[in-house]
């Protein structure tokens, strides 16, 4: 299985995300081909100030992927995911905007043709692999751990196609498939404050504590994250705001544990709130 891979700017500093994505992909024979010379997706910042620039940044990545014959782009970040899908949708719906963007890309000898499929790595692991790949080397104590899923915002919303926007279950089904126990809770798709948590930490505190308190009350031993910024806000926010500590590993780190990998190979030491015992 071969996919175009867009790692994005937060991948390197995220707590063990790259280590675990690499390890899991290698073990399962998933080939992630990095889009060479990629640039920032533009995120919420560029769409907030200038749509033309936002589209150009996203489109350059699409064009690079297409130039290398890649028809799908897999992301590991909710913000990259939604930014790309949004740009792709605008360009697909507006031939005029597409030709303006191609005129700009032309200076680098690039262009985009047609629409590009944008996917999240969770979607790949859940939907493209048979359910039994996780059972081969699974440690037998995983059922002792209760995991709460946390989707954040820009994976199911505004799209509602990977799963329903407000009560998705794909992550819980994935956690269950890995062999962990999961718990449902009311904060799975609430907002973590995203980028605002830097400038308005005090104002975002209720958002983060609402999520951490809820998973703690529901008896979760840990929270599975699917986005570097969500993971960072939930992990770093706990100490900053003096909340009850709950580890926040990435779903790929849990996938690595289910595949029998060692914590050191999954970058688990990089979590701020340590994950012990597993």
């Amino acid at each position: 299985m071969k996919y175009g891979f867009y790692s994005g700017c937060s991948y390197g500093s995220a707590a063990g995300y790259s280590e675990s994505v690499d390890a899991v992909s290698r073990a399962l024979g998933i080939e992630l081909v990095e889009i060479s010379d990629w640039n920032c997706c533009g995120a919420t910042a560029f769409f907030s100030v200038n749509e033309f620039k936002a589209l150009a940044l996203a489109a350059r990545n699409f064009a690079l992927a297409q130039a290398h014959g890649l028809k799908e782009i897999v992301t590991i970040c909710n913000a990259c995911y939604t930014t790309f899908r949004k740009a792709n949708q605008i360009l697909t719906d507006n031939p005029k905007k597409l030709s303006r963007i191609n005129a700009v890309l032309a200076q680098e000898g690039l262009s985009i043709e047609g629409s590009i499929a944008v996917r999240h790595y969770l979607d790949v692991l859940y939907n493209d692999l048979p359910a039994d790949v996780w059972a081969r080397k699974r440690p037998n104590n995983l059922k002792d751990y209760t995991v709460a899923g946390y989707y954040g915002c820009q994976l199911t919303r505004p799209w509602g196609d990977i799963d329903v926007p407000e009560h998705p279950m794909i992550l819980e089904r994935f956690i269950e498939r890995l062999g962990f126990n999961f718990v449902e809770h009311s904060a799975t798709t609430l907002c973590c404050g995203a980028f605002h948590a830097v400038s308005y930490a005090k104002e975002c505190r209720p958002l983060i504590s609402r999520i951490i308190r809820e998973v703690h009350l529901k008896g979760a031993d840990m929270v599975a994250a699917v986005c570097p910024l969500c993971q960072f806000n939930l992990d770093a926010g706990q100490q900053m705001f003096g909340l009850h500590p709950v580890p926040v590993p990435f779903f790929t780190q849990l996938a690595g544990i289910a595949l029998g990998m060692k914590p050191a190979d999954l970058g688990l030491k990089k979590l701020l709130v340590p994950l012990r015992g597993v």
Partner: peptide, 20 residues
């Protein structure tokens, strides 16, 4: 503060192509 944050963000991307 967000217009300033976005301004800083766009400047870093314009200069380096990626966010650091």
């Amino acid at each position: 503060k967000l217009p300033d944050m976005y301004h800083s963000f766009t400047q870093v991307v314009a200069r380096y192509g990626r966010i650091h």
